[in-house]
């Protein structure tokens, strides 16, 4: 118990929470897109993320490629990975209904976790770059450089996804298919093609969140599940199908955790997050910026 923080400390906690929350937000946007378009609860999002983190780890330790540069290499690979995952697995299973695809996602998560622990061992890894310990002073407040970079990355990513959905034909088709798949097909829009594109983007977003994790947190192969849960909570906070809501949900979650781990104790951070999740579900099941959840 540390009691109530002073203003400067409070500000630091707030900023830290926002920075961490941006990462939750990116993973949550991916989940939200995949759910909105295909009604698949992609619980393996966290595991895919950790896979991204290990890719960065490998590139960094084996060839000392900088994580931020490695990110550019990972992006196309994860887009392709998402495409294959949809066309090879989920497209077939999605026809059978929501539960089979949830089970498939769960199985995929377990498989990924165990493959990762075979390849990289279950030990906790970190990516320690020359600038990992760097902190920027802002008056009396210190902000971690990597966290700042990561949240910038998250904001840029969110902005790009937002522009994609609003400005491109494919993005508009994604929104159209999310709303009414049959009506979209009647206009000559292939729901399968659009779903595959959405899935790719969702997986790429998991990859980006993985890059972010690798440079800000120690991670192990099983760390992802918790992250999937956090991303789901962020989606529920923000409202399903809303990109800006998912980011906001992530930020709220990050701030809540950061505040409660300072004022109560770190062990309580998760409990506070889950309680907040329950309260949101009870009082505002559509999420804070949400539209309807009726179709679930």
């Amino acid at each position: 118990m540390t009691g109530f923080p002073s203003f400067a400390v409070f500000l630091k906690i707030l900023i830290n929470g926002v920075l961490v929350g941006c990462m939750y937000g990116v993973a949550a946007i991916g989940l939200s897109l995949i759910f909105g378009c295909m009604e698949i609860v992609f619980i393996a999002q966290g595991a895919v993320m950790i896979l991204g983190a290990y890719c960065i780890y490998w590139m960094f330790t084996l060839t000392s490629i900088d994580p931020f540069f490695g990110f550019l290499l990972i992006l196309p690979v994860f887009l392709a990975f998402g495409w294959l995952m949809y066309t090879g697995l989920f497209q077939r299973v999605a026809k059978a209904g929501k539960n089979p695809s949830l089970l498939l996602a769960f199985g995929l998560m377990v498989l990924l976790e165990h493959v990762m622990s075979l390849v990289w061992s279950p030990n906790t890894r970190t990516v320690a770059t020359s600038y990992s310990a760097l902190a920027l002073g802002l008056g009396s407040i210190n902000i971690s450089f990597t966290r700042l970079m990561v949240s910038l990355l998250a904001l840029i990513t969110t902005g790009l996804v937002f522009l994609f959905l609003k400005k491109t034909m494919l993005g508009k088709a994604v929104r159209g298919v999310s709303e009414d798949m049959r009506a979209a097909a009647l206009l000559g829009i292939s729901p399968i093609w659009v779903s595959a594109a959405t899935f790719s983007i969702g997986i790429a977003l998991a990859g980006i969140a993985g890059v972010a994790t690798s440079i800000t947190y120690p991670f192990d192969p099983y760390f992802g599940f918790l992250f999937s849960l956090k991303a789901l909570i962020a989606v529920a906070f923000g409202g399903l199908g809303s990109v800006e809501g998912a980011l906001l949900g992530g930020v709220i979650l990050g701030v809540l955790e950061s505040l409660s781990s300072y004022t109560i104790s770190a062990g309580w951070a998760d409990a506070v997050a889950y309680v907040a999740f329950l309260i949101v579900l009870i009082l505002r099941p559509r999420g804070l910026l949400g539209r309807s959840v009726e179709k679930i």
Binding site: M169, K172, A173, R175, G176, A184, L187, G188, I189
Partner: peptide, 9 residues
Amino acid sequence: ENLELGAYP
């Protein structure tokens, strides 16, 4: 946007 999607193909 609805109209634009009408010309999607």
